[in-house]
């Protein structure tokens, strides 16, 4: 397997990596709350959130370019929003045309699209930061501590474990398909091949999930994933959480 893992940089050594996963999850919640309650009419809030996130990224020794490059994953959604939202109804029309029916760009639409775009990027950066500084099992542990339903945690754990195998199997089938391709396919034939591929992936996934379930039953599984507890939080972690939350509250009140 040669895939880039979700938590590619999670094994690095840095002060951010050493923070307890539960504290990181809480800190993530605080920064999310700060970002989501920020307004486009007070742009300084966005600037502070951005600087704060990228500052922590640089302390954690994760290349900033990696975080920014990951943001490109958002681009299809962002482009759609940036194109469509300015046309929503509003009071202040910035530009308009009468073509079959009236079309207009409103100030409210522009503000909304800007707000959503900036907030999406900041939330995405925070998420990448959290996942890149926390090993996935530790993240699951933190989620369990904040009482996320066990079923959801189990699903996440299985997804993390098997998504790469699924990608691997897809790649193998795609290679086999290409190897038998003697000339360029037309669209109908291509669509047919894609349907066969999806069907094969579905069947293989189903078969594998059956085998995994059998392996779990063979080792005493009775419907609930039981895990051992991991070490408790240190005083330094709690102090860090209070200082960080306090700082965010002060910034919020000051602006």
């Amino acid at each position: 397997m040669h895939h880039s893992f979700l938590d590619k940089y999670s094994e690095l050594e840095s002060p951010v990596h050493r923070i307890h996963p539960l504290v990181k999850l809480c800190g993530y919640g605080v920064i999310l709350l700060f970002t989501l309650t920020a307004s486009i009419y007070r742009p300084l809030e966005f600037v502070i959130a951005g600087v704060l996130i990228l500052g922590v990224v640089s302390i954690s020794r994760i290349p900033i370019i990696y975080v920014i490059r990951k943001t490109l994953l958002l681009s299809p959604l962002m482009i759609t929003l940036l194109i469509l939202l300015p046309f929503i109804r509003g009071e202040r029309i910035l530009w308009g045309i009468n073509f079959i029916f009236p079309i207009s760009i409103t100030a409210e639409g522009v503000y909304l699209s800007g707000t959503i775009a900036v907030k999406s990027v900041l939330v995405f950066w925070s998420s990448v930061l959290l996942v890149s500084t926390t090993r996935f099992p530790d993240l699951l542990y933190a989620l369990r501590m904040v009482r996320v339903p066990q079923t959801m945690i189990t699903v996440l754990a299985f997804m993390y474990r098997y998504v790469f195998l699924l990608i691997d199997e897809t790649e193998r089938m795609e290679t086999a398909h290409r190897a038998r391709l003697v000339r360029r396919q037309g669209l109908p034939l291509l669509m047919k091949s894609v349907v066969y591929l999806v069907r094969a992936i579905f069947i293989r996934s189903f078969e594998r999930s059956t085998r995994v379930y059998q392996a779990m039953c063979a080792r005493g599984f009775r419907g609930e994933v039981c895990l051992l507890q991991t070490p408790s939080i240190h005083t330094a972690d709690i102090v860090f959480l209070f200082v960080f939350t306090g700082l965010i509250v002060v910034i919020k009140l000051a602006i």
């Binding site: 098997y162 195998l165 594998r208 063979a218 005493g220």
Partner: peptide
């Protein structure tokens, strides 16, 4: 039972969790 394909048998996030799975259950 040790399965033929280890990817069917190994489903936990870490090696420790994997080996501990049966004793815990």
């Amino acid at each position: 039972l040790v399965f033929q394909d280890p990817d069917d048998q190994l489903f936990c996030p870490t090696v420790f969790d994997e080996v501990a799975f049966a004793p815990i259950n």
